[in-house]
Amino acid sequence: MKSTKYIFIYVLASLMLLPSCDIIELPDTASLAFREDLYGTPAQPPAISDMIQRVLLEDFTGHQCGNCPEAHIVAAEILDAHPEHIALVAIHAGSLAGVFGPYTSDWTTPEGEFYLFSQIGSDQLPTGRINRVGGANSSSNFAQWQTQVTEQLAEIPQADLAISTELETENNHVNVHIRTKYGVARTGNIKLTLMFAEGPIIAPQLNYDADPELITDYEHKHMLRGTGTGATGLVVASNPTTNQEDVIHYTLPWNPTWDPQNFELIGFLTDGESGEVINVRKIDLVP
């Protein structure tokens, strides 16, 4: 009997050890090529007639961040003022985005954590980036966002992009067609990043301006749920020349548990070295 007890203890200890492995699979960005075998000749993305400068606003937030709803309001006001020229994405990341108590859902993404911890190098919320001006490591307080957005919108566009999509639910794919056009010649690599943003999502949020501070049915908007191209994007051009125009087609995996009606696809071009956003485009995933 005594031995049985010991065996039980050791078996228990062994079982505690067995789950101690995190096997990481190779990300599927290696196979983004358009699946002509399934979908035939790809559709053409819309033409780009006049290039327009737009702005990517990345709002870093977390459901346990009581000051973040104030930043959400600023971001929403900016979007309302320029609905066609602003791509807003709310990136849940950092310790205040952790699962705790009533905040039972994990809204973080590996890409979002990479942006906050590895690029910005901070765990402080709220914070944000406006077209990643100053480079991918830069960030700004929401009090500065309006000014920075105004400055960025006034810039002469150096490149533009147009996007169209088809959702292929049978195979859990999204076909994405992107046209890029460069207004001026550039040196170095140009990268394209595609983000999936979802909203509204009803879930708890701490808000220090509310009473009670815990809002159980907060409406989260434009929430980053993943990228199709990896956090820092894929190289789509090297040393592009003036008026160079390229068309790219991808077949991205689609998470069948997501409701496509709630999704936006945000595509943006960045400087391959500094990470600054050159231009951005958003579309509803389902027109």
């Binding site: 062994s14 050890l17 067995l18 789950p19 101690s20 492995c21 995190d22 096997i23 990481i24 990300p27 960005t29 590996p110 890409e111 954590e113 990479f114 911890f117 590895s118 990268k191 990896g230 956090a231 820092t232 994007g233 894929l234 190289v235």
Partner: peptide, 26 residues
């Protein structure tokens, strides 16, 4: 034998790709 180490970590970036770090390596 079975040996596992735990070390907290997030992600690493390599050549433009972001990879999750395994916190538990067995």
């Amino acid at each position: 034998s079975f040996v596992s180490k735990y070390e907290a970590g997030e992600n690493i970036e390599k050549g433009g790709e972001v990879f999750a770090l395994p916190n538990n390596v067995g």
